[in-house]
């Protein structure tokens, strides 16, 4: 399967914070959700993918091209949406379009007008008077109007109301009907992902914990509940992290088969949500 984004052994170090040895592939034609707690390095990774930051070591390829020689070709094919407004806030949407549109070879005015109508965006009001949701819609209208093949979004749903979040997901699904398109977006609202994500990349403290299809995640990870007596040094190996309570234990496993072999019917196995996985993974660190 073709990879649209490929990070090989990418490391970027800051004072007191770093993203290390990231190997990440984003598959063409699918939606990859990028999850992780605040400060895990999601924005840093996205900035490196956009060439706003350069990695200390490692290799980044977008559409199989690198930024040293193909920066314009790459960005021509990317639509971006960031958490905050990056457009000149004193300007109205019409003027912003006038600045952004000529940058792209494949800018489509008709398409843009269609989105402006659909999102009910005012063309003559300064962007700074827009609500968070409207700013987001404006960014999206701009990102989707030049026939981009890859949409990169940093926390697009943060601060949006549930209705607009749902509308946004519908719109993205519409976008994905064309199989040549790819979406990569970071979020910490994991319910957004249940609906549209095909792959989940999970970043924790600057390290990529996994990048798997949602089916692999569902088949490998599970919550296991049982009596505390069942746990010993050997059986504990099957778990990523264990919570003990007087009433019994609850643990996360990343190997459901091993748990089945070890415990059989003596434990209850439940589907683990992405939130469960993030929560227990975090626990693992303070535990070790």
């Amino acid at each position: 399967m073709e990879n649209v984004v490929e990070l090989k052994n990418v490391t970027k170090k800051f004072k007191g914070f770093s993203v290390e040895n990231i190997d990440l592939q984003v598959k063409k034609g699918f939606v990859t959700g990028f999850i992780g707690a605040n400060g895990a390095g999601k924005s840093t990774t996205i900035k490196m993918i956009m060439n706003l930051l350069k990695p200390d070591t490692g290799e980044i390829k977008i559409f199989g091209l690198d930024y040293q020689t193909h920066e314009k070709e790459i960005k021509e094919r990317i639509g971006f949406v960031y958490d905050g407004n990056v457009f000149f806030e004193g300007l109205n949407l019409k003027d912003i379009k006038r600045i952004v549109a000529p940058a792209y070879k494949h800018w489509d005015d008709t398409l843009f007008e269609q989105f402006v109508d659909q999102f009910e965006l005012p063309l003559n009001k300064a962007i700074k008077t827009f609500s968070k949701g409207m700013q987001m819609k404006a960014s999206l209208a701009i990102a989707l109007s030049h026939h981009a093949e890859l949409i990169i979004m940093d926390e697009p749903t943060a601060g949006l109301d549930p209705i607009f979040r749902r509308e946004l997901l519908n719109l993205l699904q519409e976008f994905m009907v064309d199989g040549n398109r790819t979406i990569f977006f970071s979020t910490h609202i994991t319910t957004d992902l249940d609906r549209i994500a095909d792959y989940i990349a999970f970043l924790q403290r600057g390290e990529l914990v996994f990048n798997q299809s949602i089916h692999d995640v569902a088949e490998n990870y599970a919550l296991v509940k049982g009596r505390v007596e069942l746990l010993d040094r050997d059986t504990e190996k099957a778990f990523v992290h264990i919570h003990r309570a007087p009433t019994g234990f609850e643990a996360l496993t990343n190997n459901v088969n091993a748990v089945n072999n070890t415990f059989g019917n003596s434990v209850v196995i439940e589907r683990a949500s992405l939130e469960d996985i993030m929560y227990y993974m975090k626990g693992r660190e303070s535990y070790v």
Binding site: F30, L169, N170, V177, G179, R195, I196, A197, D198
Partner: peptide, 19 residues
Amino acid sequence: PSMRKLAKDLHISVITTKR
């Protein structure tokens, strides 16, 4: 329907209809 259209109509991910 194509798997992508079905995914859109059912509001589920493409990889699910693909499978």
